[in-house]
């Protein structure tokens, strides 16, 4: 008798935290919205904006949401180091256990390790993610973050804001606002994860 009650384990990235079933419709076309250079400029600009807004750099910390937010967070930190000569504390957070759709997706997505190697108490923590869509990922990340302590403030930096929020959440620092239809797929590629830097949108045919 097979004794491991085979729970289908997804070995890979969990699906994006969105509502409803898989979006219907055939993919019609894929357009590149941000090129490699656009991504680089957006990150540099976000780094500048963070520094301008938070004068006291000693309070700042940057925390990326896995899997692409942590890569972006690390680049923003590098940009701030290059411009200001300051090394900000860097962390990465995995939100899997905080998802509000765990009971709906039918299998247990892989939980990756969170690393917050500093105290978040009384710090201004800038959460970083690749795409801001429904806001559910950010809600989960904030819940996870406050389990580490009580930050003075939490800010949000995203490479792409594509609209269609389902929660009262907005970003403080945005690389690019991209109007999309809810059915579209916005795909951020970063060298650390995908081997290349760009942002594409796949438009789907309405059914």
């Amino acid at each position: 008798m097979r004794t491991w009650l085979t729970v289908p384990i997804l070995l890979g990235a969990p699906p994006p935290l969105t509502t409803g079933p898989a979006r219907p419709g055939r993919e019609r076309q894929t357009t590149t919205l941000l090129s490699r250079d656009d991504v680089r400029r957006a990150i540099t600009r976000i780094a500048h904006e963070i520094v301008e807004r938070e004068r006291d750099l000693s309070l700042l910390a940057i925390v990326g949401i896995r899997a692409r937010g942590d890569a972006l967070a690390s680049r923003i930190r590098e940009a701030i180091r290059a411009n200001e000569g300051v090394d900000l504390p860097l962390g990465a957070i995995d939100i899997t256990l905080y998802r509000d759709d765990l009971t709906r997706i039918g299998y247990a997505p892989v939980v990756r390790e969170s690393e917050i190697p500093f105290s978040v108490d009384d710090r201004v923590v800038v959460l970083v993610d690749d795409v801001l869509f429904t806001g559910r990922t950010v809600r989960a990340a904030m819940d996870a973050l406050v389990d580490y302590g009580r930050p003075r403030a939490i800010r949000l930096a995203v490479l792409v804001d594509r609209g269609h929020r389902e929660l009262p959440i907005r970003a403080d620092f945005v690389g690019k606002n991209i109007p999309t239809s809810p059915e579209d797929d916005v795909r951020v590629h970063l060298t650390e994860v995908d081997g290349r830097d760009d942002v594409e949108v796949a438009v789907r045919e309405r059914v």
Binding site: L97, Y98, V110, R112, D147
Partner: peptide, 23 residues
């Protein structure tokens, strides 16, 4: 390996000031 990898993430949760996740 899957269980051991997941365990690593759980060890980190147990090291937090609030040792609780809502899963």
């Amino acid at each position: 390996e899957t269980v051991l990898d997941q365990t690593r993430a759980m060890v980190e949760i147990l090291s937090r000031p609030i040792r609780r996740a809502p899963a």
